[in-house]
Design a protein around this nucleic acid. Structure first.
Length: 716
DNA sequence: ATCACAATACTTTTT
DNA sequence: GTATTGTGAT
């Protein structure tokens, strides 16, 4: 089969593993996404599995789209001929929720509340509970609620042992009520409600199991508890499940991702086939050595030996700039030099940073130099005021129950409706046992409503009439015509005045809507909520790309700049007190390094401005971990060669040897320094260690990681 | 009562 | 530099 001729033996082994649970543990640049795509093609072409029975889950829309394109071209099919189902966890289950809406406490017209909407709900709830947002930070409350939801904890079961958790519990209760009355779901609901649905309706679960007997998952290390639960539900006891993962690239712990799901998977499927991919096709050996030196400082981790046939390549350049402006200037100049010398094109370069705020200095440097750049994510397109305004109008037209959108829409552009008028509207709605929108629509039709002061009535009924008109035509005209009409009647362009760029954003959104002309308003709104505009900006512009380290995952560039290698920036100061969070910062740096094919340039600024004030910084601790003999530039004297040697020695020596063979067997007698004597009940060889279950005479049954436990085998 | 403008406070990463 | 809140003018 010529499909497999492009693959190396390891990759081929993975792709052709017989159906069943398969885990591919892959290093960066080892072609793991490629393996996933070929697996899909292999299932269809070689094993004659109907493509429609395959469900592939990813974490970003971009990954899903890319996979779809590549898989279809491998299969020589067009998207129309019933391809596999590819999508993100969120979009896939949102789709299922719409289909199954009848059994759930919302209608299929539900809207998805994004981060800003969720925060608005929390703020409102806090306000109603008379809480000072300075004392109880809405952001933290939301994070806490989200965590609870991910762990399937209901408001009633939410522990309230401190003042903060008690407030959170009350906010959580209201928050859920608001979602319900707004006919809205948040991101967590998109995963939780399917779990509940499947739980309560096993028949429904069975239907989906039968529909998708073949499951593929990309970036498995990023699954959270809810996602893993769903995956297991869909997979059942004996699934054809194919997942690819790299625990070293796990960078989403803060949103609930748990790379230990990799270990869990091993526990849950005893027949799991594990395949390692360590050969790297992306980077030079120098880059890999640096990356390994960084990640190997991490304790409790299986060491991967990344290797490449690409040769050693250029050293890594490390530069200390005076401040962030000079840092940015250095980047621009360096790129100009690469371009002039013909070593690279502008589009080959990427500039990565820890926080979105850091992009500004770099953007300014490019603007000063009059050079173009591509910005990924960042001050999100969908986060812009004018874009959110228009989306709010669309959501309101689609789902009049959405009060968050109503509140936004009714105030912009200003139309003489302020706090007092809104309060009157709310009171009138309560009295009439109707929603505010119902009242508005009645007013719009010229009906009398009790409790609305004459003063406010004119502006309210004018707005109500507009809304009524839009709702009436929403299903009769195509999406972009609806948008045109809304913009026109709002005189939105005049409202924006001479802010041409903002109008351009509105038009760009209209352009997106045009693509959804056929699919309609529902799909458009879902897309808008779930897409993280990772790629909304010009694709084929030959210019450097600016992006966060998080956004960089899964990408590769010939030349990578990582800026802001200062303590407090990378690692970020918010991660300082938590070893797990600090470990994640390290992985983030590792991800950045391993994006590079040919060259890495690392930068730091001696002085950095943060919210107006300029402070001195220390070099990032991660710089110390880089092997000096792989570096060049002006910041390598941070540690003496002797120290460097010492660090490297200890680093290698502190490793626990990897078991290649099972050392323990059921029935063996062992002794443990703490637990004393016992008998092995079960031993399992994992990827990074051997896990043993021992029944100790003194303390009973314990699960142990063999290398850590210091178990001694007693001769029988 | 509403709105524009000024003062104030806050910034990790994203589906 | 930006979201949110506060204040004064209309």
């Amino acid at each position: 089969m010529d499909l497999l001729s492009d693959l190396n033996p390891q990759q081929r082994e993975a792709v052709t593993a017989s159906p069943g649970p398969v885990l591919v543990l892959a290093g960066p640049g080892s072609g793991k996404t490629r393996v996933l795509i070929y697996r899909l093609a292999y299932l269809v072409q070689e094993l004659q599995i109907p493509a429609g029975e395959i469900l592939a889950l990813t974490f970003t829309n971009k990954a899903a789209r890319e996979m779809e394109g590549r898989a279809l071209s491998l299969l020589e099919r067009s998207p129309s001929t019933g391809g596999p189902r590819l999508g993100t966890f969120h979009s896939t289950f949102a789709r299922i929720l719409r289909i199954e809406a009848d059994r759930l406490p919302f209608t299929r017209d539900f809207v998805i509340f994004d981060d800003a909407d969720q925060l608005a709900l929390v703020r409102q709830a806090l306000k109603e509970l008379n809480q000072d947002p300075k004392q109880v930070q809405p952001r933290r409350v939301l994070a806490s609620i989200s965590r609870a939801k991910n762990e399937l904890i209901e408001p009633q079961a939410f522990s309230s042992d401190t003042y903060f958790t008690e407030i959170t519990r009350r906010v959580y209760e209201r928050y859920q009520q608001y979602l319900r009355t707004n006919n809205a779901l948040d991101f967590d609901d998109l995963l939780l409600l399917p779990i509940r649905l499947f739980h309560e309706h096993p028949g429904t679960l069975e239907t989906y199991r039968r529909r998708y007997p073949h499951l593929l998952v990309d970036e498995f290390q990023d699954t959270n508890t809810a996602q893993y639960t769903l995956l297991r539900m869909l997979a059942g006891a004996d699934p054809d499940l194919f997942v690819v993962a790299d625990p070293d690239q796990s960078i989403y712990r803060w949103r609930g991702a748990d790379y230990r799901n990799v270990q869990l998977l091993r526990k849950d499927y005893s027949n799991l086939v594990t395949i390692l991919l360590e050969q790297n096709y992306r980077s030079t050996q120098t880059i890999l050595d640096a990356a390994m030196a960084v990640i190997d400082r991490q304790p409790d981790r299986q060491r991967k030996q990344l290797f490449t046939e690409r040769g050693s390549g250029a050293r890594i350049l490390v530069h200390e700039a005076y401040d962030q402006d000079e840092e940015a200037q250095f980047v621009v100049e360096k790129i100009s030099m690469f371009t002039l010398s013909g070593e690279a094109e502008p589009g080959d370069c990427a500039i990565m940073y820890r926080t979105n705020a850091q992009s500004r200095a770099i953007e300014e440097a490019f603007l000063r130099a009059g050079l173009p750049y591509r910005l990924v994510g960042a001050q999100r397109f969908y986060g812009r005021k004018e874009v959110k305004d228009l989306i709010a109008y669309m959501r309101l037209i689609h789902n009049p129950a959405d009060q968050v959108s109503l509140m936004r829409a009714i105030r912009t552009p200003p139309r003489g409706i302020g706090d007092k008028t809104l309060e009157a509207l709310r009171v009138a709605a309560d009295q009439a046992e109707a929603t505010p929108v119902d009242i508005l629509l009645s007013l719009g039709r010229g009906e009398e409503v009790a409790g609305i002061p004459a003063r406010s009535r004119a502006s309210l009924s004018r707005f109500g009439a507009l809304l009524d008109g839009w709702i009436e035509i929403k299903d009769q005209v195509v999406l972009e015509s609806l948008i045109d009409r809304v913009l026109e009647q709002l005189e939105y362009r005049a409202y924006l005045g001479d802010a041409e760029d903002r109008w351009a954003n509105v038009m760009e959104l209209r352009g997106v809507a045009q693509e959804f002309s056929e699919l309609g308003l529902v799909e458009f709104l879902q897309q808008v909520a779930l897409v993280s505009d990772q790629d909304t900006l010009t694709e084929n512009l030959n210019a450097p790309t600016l992006l966060t380290l998080h956004a960089a995952k899964g990408l590769e560039f010939p030349i990578v700049f990582i800026v802001g290698l200062d303590e407090g920036e990378l690692p970020h100061f918010r991660s300082q007190d938590d070893p797990e969070a600090m470990a994640e910062e390290r992985r983030l740096f590792y991800v950045g390094l391993t994006r590079a094919q040919d060259r890495v340039i690392l930068l730091r600024a001696f002085r950095r401005r943060a919210r107006g004030v300029s402070t001195l910084t220390d070099p990032s601790r991660f710089l110390d971990d880089l092997p000096a003999d792989r570096l060049e530039g002006d910041l390598i004297g941070v540690r003496t060669p002797a120290q460097d040697e010492y660090f490297r020695e200890t680093r290698w020596q502190s490793r626990v040897p990897v078991p290649t063979q099972a050392r323990y067997q059921a029935g063996m007698h062992v002794t443990h320094p703490q637990f004393g004597e016992g008998v092995v009940l079960e031993a399992q060889l994992g990827y990074d260690d051997e896990e043993v279950t021992v029944n100790f005479e003194e303390v009973g049954i314990k699960h142990l990681v063999a290398s850590m436990a210091g178990l001694q085998i007693e001769d029988p």
